[in-house]
Measured scan of single mutants.
Amino acid sequence: AQVHVDGVTYDFDNPEEAEKFAREMAKRKGGTVEVKNDQWHVE
């Protein structure tokens, strides 16, 4: 699973880890999390 944050792509073998990371980053940035094509996007 991939997580996109500020133009940087992070690869995770485990989708749950990807989701956890995406939500944590969004919380830190005060942003939102979107899922597109099985990829997490932190805005």
Results as ranks from 00 to 15, higher is better:
Ala1Asp: 04
Ala1Tyr: 15
Ala1Gln: 11
Ala1Pro: 12
Gln2Asp: 02
Gln2Glu: 05
Gln2Val: 11
Val3Lys: 01
Val3His: 01
Val3Gly: 01
Val3Phe: 02
His4Glu: 07
His4Tyr: 13
His4Ser: 07
His4Lys: 08
Val5Arg: 02
Val5Ile: 13
Val5Asn: 02
Val5Gly: 01
Val5Cys: 15
Asp6Tyr: 10
Asp6His: 07
Asp6Trp: 08
Asp6Leu: 06
Asp6Ser: 07
Asp6Glu: 08
Asp6Gln: 05
Gly7Thr: 02
Gly7Lys: 02
Gly7Ile: 03
Gly7Ser: 03
Gly7Asn: 06
Val8Phe: 11
Val8Tyr: 11
Val8Gly: 02
Val8Lys: 12
Val8Ile: 13
Val8Asp: 04
Thr9Asp: 02
Tyr10Glu: 00
Tyr10Ala: 00
Asp11Tyr: 15
Asp11Trp: 15
Asp11Asn: 14
Asp11Thr: 14
Asp11Lys: 14
Asp11Cys: 15
Asp11Ser: 14
Asp11His: 14
Asp11Leu: 14
Asp11Gly: 08
Asp11Glu: 13
Phe12Val: 00
Phe12Glu: 00
Phe12Thr: 01
Phe12Asn: 00
Phe12Ile: 01
Asp13Trp: 06
Asp13Glu: 12
Asp13Asn: 11
Asp13Thr: 09
Asp13Ser: 11
Asp13His: 07
Asn14Ala: 06
Asn14Phe: 06
Asn14Asp: 13
Asn14Tyr: 06
Asn14Arg: 07
Pro15Gly: 08
Pro15Ala: 13
Pro15Gln: 10
Pro15Asp: 10
Glu16His: 10
Glu16Thr: 09
Glu16Pro: 01
Glu17Asp: 13
Glu17Leu: 08
Glu17His: 04
Glu17Met: 06
Ala18Arg: 02
Ala18Gly: 02
Ala18Asn: 00
Glu19Lys: 04
Glu19Tyr: 09
Glu19Thr: 02
Glu19Asn: 02
Glu19Pro: 00
Lys20His: 08
Lys20Met: 10
Lys20Glu: 10
Lys20Phe: 08
Lys20Ser: 10
Lys20Pro: 00
Phe21Lys: 00
Phe21Asn: 00
Phe21Ile: 00
Phe21Arg: 01
Ala22Tyr: 03
Ala22Ser: 02
Ala22Met: 04
Ala22Lys: 02
Ala22Cys: 13
Ala22Thr: 01
Arg23Asn: 08
Arg23Cys: 14
Arg23Met: 08
Arg23Tyr: 12
Arg23Thr: 06
Arg23Val: 07
Arg23Lys: 09
Arg23Pro: 00
Glu24Ile: 07
Glu24Asn: 06
Glu24Leu: 11
Glu24Ser: 07
Glu24Lys: 08
Glu24Gly: 03
Met25Ile: 10
Met25Arg: 02
Met25Tyr: 08
Ala26Glu: 03
Ala26Pro: 00
Ala26Met: 05
Ala26Leu: 05
Lys27Thr: 10
Lys27Ser: 11
Lys27Gln: 13
Lys27His: 10
Arg28Phe: 11
Arg28Gln: 13
Lys29Arg: 13
Lys29His: 14
Lys29Ala: 10
Gly30Arg: 07
Gly30Asp: 06
Gly30Thr: 04
Gly31Phe: 12
Gly31Ser: 09
Gly31Asp: 05
Gly31Thr: 10
Gly31Ile: 08
Gly31Lys: 05
Thr32Gly: 06
Thr32Glu: 06
Val33Arg: 03
Val33Asn: 03
Val33Ser: 05
Val33Ile: 10
Val33Tyr: 07
Glu34Arg: 15
Glu34Thr: 15
Glu34Phe: 15
Val35Ala: 06
Val35Gln: 12
Val35Gly: 10
Val35Glu: 06
Lys36Arg: 14
Lys36Val: 13
Asn37Gly: 14
Asn37Tyr: 09
Asn37Ile: 07
Asn37Ala: 09
Asp38Phe: 12
Asp38Leu: 12
Asp38Asn: 15
Asp38Gln: 12
Asp38Arg: 12
Asp38Pro: 05
Gln39Gly: 15
Gln39Glu: 09
Gln39Lys: 10
Gln39Ser: 11
Gln39Ile: 14
Trp40Gly: 03
Trp40Gln: 05
Trp40Lys: 04
Trp40Leu: 08
Trp40Ser: 03
Trp40Asp: 04
His41Leu: 09
His41Cys: 15
His41Gly: 03
His41Ile: 14
His41Ala: 07
Val42Phe: 05
Val42Lys: 04
Val42Tyr: 05
Val42Gln: 03
Val42Ser: 04
Glu43Pro: 07
Glu43Leu: 15
Glu43Gly: 12
Glu43Ala: 13
Glu43Ser: 14
Glu43Lys: 14
Glu43Asp: 10
